[in-house]
Design a protein around this nucleic acid. Structure first.
Lengths: 94, 94
DNA sequence: TAAACTGGTTTACATTATAAACCAAAATAT
DNA sequence: ATATTTTGGTTTATAATGTAAACCAGTTTA
């Protein structure tokens, strides 16, 4: 029987963000925006959701005088991602 | 840059249906319902969408006197599935 | 000092998913 | 015979989700 796919990760933008965060130490809002090609509004909303789920941590600081939002994946996020990929494999293996 | 994921396939239920249809000659509505654990209503709607996209063909006939809905994946559906999997790999590879 | 840009957030709307209600015919129970 | 339930779905209403547009505070540029 096919396993359920974590609905928080089964979203193109959120999955993209998680995928990027897995490959870097941390990423700034603008970097994620550029890489994912998302609008700022959409990215902001989806980062909140990932953050509330505890899949990423979001730190707000300042770069000189400009606001700076920095994101990192958490242990919980990594685990959820791995589980998602595992479940997904049942769907996409030929 | 991450590729877009075909929104028609990026849905748990529709992806599940396609996955199943890839592994069988054809499948009846009730079989798909059982395998995917979906409600009949939801399955009906999603089969329509896949059918309208030309990803599956749906044939309505009778099994004796009972209605019988039989689904098959199409060439177009197979190709779309392959492309989806390819795009997805960029997201889920470590 | 006004205009435009940066780095976002909030809010309203469109799309999507899902469940509940429904339907026709058939099988079963009364 | 005739209710009652079951089968095999479809239609419709609502809930959840995604996304874009509007907005905001502060900064730089003209």
């Amino acid at each position: 029987m096919l396993k359920d796919l974590d609905p928080l990760l089964h979203s193109q933008l959120r999955l993209g963000v998680m995928s990027i965060l897995l490959s870097v130490e941390s990423a700034e809002f603008t970097f994620l925006k550029e890489k994912t090609n998302a609008s700022a509004g959409n990215l902001s909303v989806q980062l909140d959701k990932l953050s509330e789920a505890g899949y990423i941590s979001v730190e707000k600081s300042f770069n000189g005088k400009k606001p700076l939002t920095t994101c990192k994946i958490t242990k919980k996020g990594m685990k959820a991602f791995e589980e998602y990929v595992n479940s997904l494999k049942d769907y996409i293996k030929k």
